[in-house]
C-alpha cells in the first residue's frame, strides 16, 4: 500500500510534543481559501515551476513527451497536456522544475521516521501525520499506524475532521493526540471558506472526545476574514464543551501559500500578502482566553 507523500519534515517542533517527524500526505477534501499548502490539496503529483531559477539549459524542452515547455522570449510552461510524468523535473538540475509528491510504502515512510527514534525517546516526541488530510489515504494510514505503534512511537495526527466516523473509530486506539482543525464555527461560513459545512467535523470531534481521544484544537486565523468575536468565543465554548481538549493553538495567517499557487500554476483565492500582525494575535489570544480555562497558545 502506498500514499503520495509531499514532504517529510525532521525536527518538526510545532506539530505536537517533543521532537517529531511530520509526514505530509497529499490530498485534501477541503479547499480553504487561505490554504498555505496548496500543493497538498490534490491527491496526485504536481509540478512546481519557478521560472526565476531556470538557467535555460534546455533539457526539459527536449525531454517532455508532450512539449509542455516552450522556449522563446518568455519561457513558458503550458500545463494543458502535462501528464505529470516527472521526466522534466528529473533533469532540471537547476531546481526550476520540481515534482511535488512521491509514492511511498508505509515501510519506506516508517524507515525514514525511525531514523530519529532516539531523539523522540529523549524528548517525548514521535511521529505526526499531516497533509493535506492524512485520512484521505486511509488504508495506507492504518498500515502505517499499526507499524508505528508496534515500534513504540508516540503518534499525532493533524486532521480537518472531514472523514467518516468509522475511519476515526478504527484508528482511535493508535492516536495519542489529535491536532484538530477548527476553521470556522459557523456552518455557513465554514462552507464559504472551505467548501464544506462543519456538521460532520464537529460530530466527529465530539465522538473522539467521548471516546477519550486527546485533542489540541488548531485554529487558522486570518485578520478580517475569520477572526470575528463570535467565532473566537465559539471556539472557547467548544473547548469548554469537551472533556479532553489539552490546548487551543492559534495559527496566525501567513502568505506563503500565495507564492506556491503561482509555482503550481493555479490562482490564489486569497491575495493577502501580509502576515497576521501581532496586535490581532494578541486580541485573539485574550478574546478566547476570556471564554475558557483551556490554555490558548500561538503556534
Amino acid at each position: 500500500m502506498t500514499a503520495t507523500v509531499f514532504d517529510i519534515e525532521k525536527f518538526a517542533v510545532h506539530d505536537g510534543p517533543g521532537i517529531r517527524t511530520t509526514v505530509f500526505l497529499k490530498g485534501c477534501p477541503l479547499r480553504c481559501i487561505w490554504c498555505h499548502n496548496p500543493e497538498s490539496q490534490r491527491r496526485e503529483k504536481e509540478i512546481f515551476f519557478s521560472p526565476e531559477k531556470c538557467i535555460g539549459c534546455g533539457w526539459c524542452f527536449r525531454i517532455c513527451p508532450n512539449h509542455c515547455h516552450i522556449a522563446g522570449e518568455t519561457r513558458r510552461f503550458d500545463r494543458t497536456n502535462c501528464i505529470r510524468c516527472g521526466k522534466c523535473t528529473e533533469k532540471c538540475y537547476a531546481g526550476a522544475l520540481e515534482l511535488v509528491g512521491r509514492e511511498m510504502t508505509a515501510d519506506e515512510v516508517l524507515d525514514e521516521v525511525l531514523k530519529d527514534k532516539v531523539f523522540y525517546e529523549n524528548s517525548g516526541g514521535g511521529l505526526t501525520l499531516s497533509g493535506g488530510e492524512p485520512m484521505m489515504h486511509f488504508e495506507f494510514l492504518c498500515e502505517l499506524l499499526q507499524k508505528a505503534k508496534a515500534a513504540g512511537l508516540h503518534i499525532c495526527i493533524e486532521t480537518c475532521g472531514y472523514a467518516p466516523w468509522e475511519h476515526y473509530e478504527r484508528i482511535l486506539s493508535c492516536i495519542d493526540l489529535f491536532l484538530y482543525d477548527i476553521k470556522a464555527t459557523d456552518p455557513e461560513k465554514h462552507r464559504h471558506f472551505t467548501g464544506v459545512t462543519n456538521e460532520l467535523i464537529l460530530e466527529n470531534l465530539r465522538k473522539i472526545d467521548d471516546s477519550g481521544g486527546n485533542t489540541i484544537l488548531r485554529c487558522p486565523l486570518v485578520p478580517g476574514v475569520n477572526d470575528d468575536d463570535a467565532h473566537l468565543l465559539a471556539v472557547a465554548a467548544l473547548a469548554n464543551s469537551l472533556k479532553n481538549v489539552q490546548e487551543i493553538d492559534l495559527e496566525p495567517y501567513h502568505p506563503l501559500g500565495v507564492g506556491k499557487c503561482a509555482r503550481l500554476g493555479i490562482a490564489s483565492r486569497l491575495e493577502v500578502n501580509e502576515f497576521a500582525d501581532e496586535k490581532s494575535i494578541e486580541k485573539w489570544l485574550s478574546r478566547i482566553r476570556s471564554g475558557t480555562e483551556v490554555p490558548v497558545k500561538k503556534s
Binding site: 517542533v13 510545532h14 495559527e251 501567513h254 502568505p255 506563503l256 500578502n273 502576515f275 501581532e278
Partner: peptide, 27 residues
C-alpha cells in the same frame, strides 16, 4: 524560517516574501 505550523527554506520564498519575513523577524 519557521512560521506557525509550517517551515520553509528561506531561498524558496519570492523576494517580496523574503522582505516580509525579514520585516517580521525584526518585529
Amino acid at each position: 524560517i519557521r512560521i506557525g505550523g509550517y517551515s520553509e527554506y528561506f531561498n524558496r520564498l519570492s523576494d517580496d516574501l523574503k522582505r516580509e519575513v525579514i520585516k517580521r523577524e525584526e518585529h
